[in-house]
Design a protein around this nucleic acid. Sequence first.
DNA 1: CAATACCTTAGAATGATTCTAAACTGAGAA
DNA 2: TTCTCAGTTTAGAATCATTCTAAGGTATTG
Lengths: 129, 129
Amino acid sequence: MASRLRKAGLRPTRQRLALSSLLFGQGDRHVTAEALHCEAQAAGIELSLATVYNTLHQFTGAGMLRQVTVGGDKAYFDTNTGDHHHFYVDAEQRLIDIPGEKVEVLGLPTPPAGSEVERVDVIVRIKSR
Amino acid sequence: MASRLRKAGLRPTRQRLALSSLLFGQGDRHVTAEALHCEAQAAGIELSLATVYNTLHQFTGAGMLRQVTVGGDKAYFDTNTGDHHHFYVDAEQRLIDIPGEKVEVLGLPTPPAGSEVERVDVIVRIKSR
DNA sequence: CAATACCTTAGAATGATTCTAAACTGAGAA
DNA sequence: TTCTCAGTTTAGAATCATTCTAAGGTATTG
Ligand SMILES: [Mn+2]
Ligand SMILES: [Mn+2]
Ligand SMILES: [Zn+2]
Ligand SMILES: [Zn+2]
């Protein structure tokens, strides 16, 4: 756990270890800064919201998280950094993973000259019927 | 021009007519509220930023615009309401349309029971090489 | 233990967006 | 035309996610 942080050039502090455990201790997750902060508080871990933001960004920079943009007001951080896509449940502001292997995006035009594709995000917005 | 607004249940006020003309007078556009407000000012049209927000949302509700979410801090409004996708140039925070007919997204799983697909958004994030 | 670079954090600041409440105006009625 | 009122605009305050600042705390190494 601590070694993972060290490898990313981050000291294994109490706060980072606690957040790591919350983030990576279970299966894949999609969290907001505020939600993760609440969860930490509930678990008896004292840390500031600023530290949660700092940590989420540092983890993202280190490739341990990836940020997912769906609109709404808050930013989501995804513990699944592999190639995959998302359902977005508008009513609940919740993300559901779609495995990347099964999905194929065909017919995309060549990106403008001098630029290259960094990532292709597919967001399937769903609503209750 | 005014009839289009009336059909949407909106009075053709000076402000709405001016914004309509800026938005729909040229080809397809992707604008932020702030950018559209500046453009209006530059054209000698006096209106508040609040009115620009109100109008963008009303037009969106009427199906004349659609909102595109790419992250970043600002919301983009798209005059192209047809089926299409986007390149997003991170460095310039600029959107480029990708015609929808050519693109096909294959292999998407069935949405969760009781829900249905509202829209599928493909965002191709590009960076300069 | 000392030195130091790295971390955390309270609280202020930022910035996009929304809200409030008061003034204004388009359009139908009289 | 003038009246009336629901619909509209807007200045300014409020909201709220996120970032910043600066001051104190801590992991690491020798
Ligand atoms: Mn467009
Ligand atoms: Mn914001
Ligand atoms: Zn995911
Ligand atoms: Zn578009």
